[in-house]
């Protein structure tokens, strides 16, 4: 047991050494287990619903997600809120619109609306965030190398600034971020920051981070489950076709010296 742990530690150190040598001194995210990995991977509906709540109550204060619509929340392969829940979520938002007199108004959201953005434009977003721009999160998991692991590591990786590190004013120390200092303050600061309905695991910082990463993985790749299911079917078909073609080929060439 001890030997195993020692070996694991040694392997970990060796790997860390490799990572260190390859990428300067930015810390590499540790690989996590995610439910949607593998050929038969699927999202966990409850996890996506919890993740949506973390996104809505924490991330959405600064980050837009302009590629996702409310209707997506009840589509197959996603959080699969019920139709009524989804409509209630949409109606709880105010979205800009134009009324029949041409006046700019705010109205309650409908399923076809995209998620409203917290800021009207980039300049406003920067003005409110110390000149940093909170990026759109729609495809963030695909837009970062090792996306899900990286974002999980980033969300849980905030640490006290080492004494020898020169932190610029207004920035926060995070060893996983390129340059190790990030404008975004730690978004998940305390356990129980989000209140989930009964029957869900306790809202620890790690659990909230895992769930919001799952939600972001879904928004980046909303057709993932459909894709993998079809993939399995296509692979089985092609395998069968290859076998048939192979025997047809061998049968045909049996009488040819070649």
């Amino acid at each position: 047991m001890k030997l195993k742990a020692l070996l694991a530690l040694a392997a970990g150190l060796a790997l860390a050494g490799v990572a260190y040598a390859a990428e300067g001194d930015v810390k590499h995210p540790e690989p996590q287990k995610w439910s949607w990995e593998g050929a038969f991977g699927k999202f966990d509906r409850q996890q996506l619903q919890r993740g949506y709540q973390v996104y809505k109550e924490v991330c959405a204060a600064c980050h837009a997600m302009h590629l996702v619509s409310f209707r997506n929340l009840s589509q197959p392969g996603g959080p699969e809120f019920s139709e009524a829940q989804m409509k209630a979520i949409a109606a709880s938002f105010q979205v800009p619109a134009i009324d029949d007199k041409g006046e700019v108004i705010q109205r309650a959201g409908i399923p076809a609306d995209r998620f409203p953005s917290p800021f009207p434009n980039e300049t406003a977003a920067r003005a409110a965030n110390n000149n940093a721009y909170p990026v759109d999160l729609s495809v963030i998991v695909k837009a970062r190398h090792d996306g899900a692991n990286y974002i999980y590591a980033l969300l849980t990786g905030y640490a006290d600034t080492p004494s020898e590190f020169q932190l610029l004013p207004g920035l926060n120390y995070n060893p996983y971020f390129p340059g190790k200092q990030i404008a975004m303050p730690a978004p998940l600061v305390s356990d129980g920051q989000v209140t989930w309905p009964e029957g869900n695991p306790p809202a620890t910082k790690e659990q909230m981070a895992r769930d919001v990463v799952a939600f972001l993985a879904w928004t980046a790749e909303p057709k993932l489950e459909e894709r993998k299911l079809m993939g399995v079917q296509v692979m089985i078909f092609l395998l069968g076709l290859s076998v048939l073609l192979y025997f047809a080929y061998k049968r045909l060439w049996r009488d040819v010296d070649h």
Binding site: L241, S242, L245, A248, Y249
Partner: peptide, 8 residues
């Protein structure tokens, strides 16, 4: 047939 197999 041979190409067909390789294509598959």
């Amino acid at each position: 047939t041979k190409d067909g197999f390789a294509i598959a």
